[in-house]
């Protein structure tokens, strides 16, 4: 795991941690597994458990990227995708363990799919090789 892949995984991990931290800030006082989470800005909904899950998975992704361990990044990706599945199965109903809506699904799906794509991407032959200029 080198160069841009590692940086991108770190960025996604930080995004997950920040999302969870923001979730804690707005869901303070809610029941831990409130079916309708609090809304972060005009974006996604999280309850305290959903916020905790986001922070933990974000830290796992950061740890995997920092240690250049693809399997750890894959674990974070799997966690996000499972969280996304939870939203599909429980959103709009009770119980809704993480308090999410379709907006939360967007967050979880993006982070999960993004980390998955990064974790399974082929390595460049040379870790110092620059990205090809097709941008």
């Amino acid at each position: 795991m080198n160069g841009g892949i590692r940086t991108a995984a770190l960025v996604l991990g930080v995004l997950g941690v920040l999302s969870g931290a923001a979730g804690f800030a707005v869901s303070a006082g809610q029941p831990f597994t409130a079916a309708e989470g609090a809304r972060v800005g005009e974006l996604f909904h999280l309850n305290p458990l959903g916020s905790l899950v986001s922070v933990v998975l974000g830290l796992v992704a950061i740890a995997g990227a920092a240690a250049r361990l693809r399997v750890v990044v894959l674990v974070a990706a799997a966690g996000w995708l499972l969280a996304a599945l939870q939203v599909v199965l429980q959103s709009g109903r009770e119980p809704n363990l993480l308090g999410g809506t379709a907006s939360t699904l967007a967050l979880f799906l993006g982070l999960g799919a993004g980390l998955l794509a990064l974790a399974v991407a082929p390595e460049t032959p040379d870790a110092a090789a620059p990205a090809t200029a097709d941008t």
């Binding site: 993004g114 990064l118 082929p122 941008t135």
Partner: peptide, 21 residues
């Protein structure tokens, strides 16, 4: 291809002959 995961992943996908890549 700017400020996106495609920017990071495309150079690596281009190294693979796999149909998904």
């Amino acid at each position: 291809r700017r400020l996106g995961l495609d920017q990071v992943l495309r150079p690596r996908w281009s190294l693979s002959d796999a149909p998904l890549a």
